[in-house]
Amino acid sequence: MKNSILFVSISILTVLCSLVAPWWVIAPISFVVAYLGRMKSAAGFGVPFLAVFGTWLLAIYLKDNGVVAELMGKLLLLPNWSTPILSACLGGLVAGFFGLSGALFSYRRKTWVNG
C-alpha cells in the first residue's frame, strides 16, 4: 500500500515538475520521496524506476504517433519500437539510483532514531 502511494506520488510529481524544471528533476523527486517514505532499498530502486519508467513511456505514447520513435531509431541505429522503451529506461535508471540512495539514507536514519 505504502509503495503504491509512493509510486503515484513520484508519477504525479514527475509530470508536474517536468513542466517547469529540466528532465533530471526526477532525480531529486525520487530521492526525496524515497527518503521521506522511508523505503526499503529494493523498493527504493524499484518503485521510482517503475514510476518514472511508466510515466515517461505513457507521456511518449500520448505525444508521438511513431514518427519520432522512427527518427530516433534511425539515429541511434536501434529498432523503432525500442526507442520509447530506451527513453523510459533512461529516466527509470536515474530515478532508481536516486531512489535507492534516498532509501539507503533514510534506512540509516530509521535505525539511528530507533536505537
Binding site: W23, K63, S87, G91, V94
Partner: peptide
C-alpha cells in the same frame, strides 16, 4: 545529450507533429 534528447517533456518527443 540523450537525457535532454529522449525525455518526453522537453526532448525530441515534443517535436512529434500529427
Amino acid at each position: 545529450p540523450i537525457g535532454k534528447l529522449l525525455n518526453p517533456f522537453t526532448g525530441a518527443w515534443q517535436n512529434s507533429e500529427k
